[in-house]
């Protein structure tokens, strides 16, 4: 293969790699925002894991399998 073809292929390769990642990540972002909006899951409340982190604070969401009283 000559240099020119190689460079052309590399060029297309670069474009399609970028396009592929673009689609995957925008798709994921869209799904996150959709889940938040539809109320399936509130992601934003998880900041409280930091703000309320003392050992005697009530857990934000208790673990189902924890042997908590």
């Amino acid at each position: 293969m000559d240099q020119e073809t190689l460079m052309t292929m590399a060029g297309y390769g670069k474009f399609f790699i970028l396009l592929f990642i673009f689609i995957i990540f925008y798709g994921y972002a869209f799904s996150l925002y959709k889940r938040q909006r539809s109320g399936e899951r509130d992601f934003e409340k998880y900041s409280d894991l930091v703000l309320n982190d003392s050992l005697d604070a009530a857990p934000l969401e208790k673990r189902d399998n924890s042997k908590e009283k």
């Binding site: 972002a29 996150l32 409340k45 998880y46 900041s47 982190d53």
Partner: peptide
């Protein structure tokens, strides 16, 4: 952890933090 804790602020967007992680 330390910036929201020290400033007492909520993370601006938790969703963005998860997205940026992946």
């Amino acid at each position: 952890y330390f910036l929201p804790k020290e400033s007492g602020q909520n993370v601006f967007s938790y969703k963005l933090s998860v997205l940026a992680f992946w």
